[in-house]
Amino acid sequence: MNSNSTIMAAEKGTSLWEDAWIKLSKNRLALVGLGLLIFLCVISLLTPWIAPYGYEKQDLLMGATPPSAEHWLGTDVFGRDMLTRIMWGGRVSLMVGFIATAVALAIGVVYGAVAGYVGGRVDAVMMRLVDILYALPFMIFIILLMVVFGRNLLLLFFAIGAVEWLTMARIVRGQVMSLRKQEFVEAAHSLGLSQWIIIRRHIIPNTLGPVIVYTTLTIPSVMLLEAFLSFLGLGIQPPQSSWGLLINYGVETMEEYPWLLIFPGIALSLTLFALNFLGDGLRDALDPRTAKD
């Protein structure tokens, strides 16, 4: 948001961004997505005050029960309220999803853009470095991280971000490379526009589309990756939970207690759809070509 406002301030008149906002506000689906995301975030923020039960409160004698008046989404095998656990899990999952993706986005976009724009030998070296990082055994890497730094959530974000930026970098680089040789960029060059203006005016807006699409795809996979890291001992520890972990446990008992899978699944899917609608809307809104139509 910060960069938006500076750019908006820099450019007078109806900038790309103002245009985009006007277009976005006309896209009903995107607004629904945005609303849903805000709603989920608000719920997560308020969870400590509005959750119906304690997330660790057990009733072993009751065990797993289907949805009822007392427990709207049922209870798990420990007799813990599922609604409460999904709300608390959402805090972890949304946080991991957004922060880790932001880390990946920041590294990936900058790295990819530099490689793609500078090109030549620098590009080759940078991309081979990406190849190397792709190839390293991820699991051993995570296990080592855990040993070296101990466990904390920040580390989790770092670990996930450190993995997810690679593909982002490749995508951005590809896009930037093909843009660099397009007529309008070359035209801008010949007009004597500065590098920075070319990057800002032409390169960035044109790479936003694929980046946004890939970002909406990254957030869900990050949320699921968190569950795997927790499995390796790096993530969160019981009795805390996350959507990824709840779904993992739910799969084990999907025949016996389907609600343990369905409800966390719905929570995750809702987030994804919201992100997806918003992402598509943003992409369409930011597309410079449609903007000129």
Binding site: E56, F78, I143, G233, Q237, P238, P239
Partner: peptide, 26 residues
């Protein structure tokens, strides 16, 4: 088992118990 015992110790002894899972070789 660990989640259940954690809760039992909290409830009966009022002590703070944390869980820590690690990958097998670790």
């Amino acid at each position: 088992v660990a989640v259940a015992i954690q809760q039992m110790w909290r409830e009966h002894l009022n002590i703070e118990v944390k869980l820590l899972n690690q990958e097998w070789k670790v």
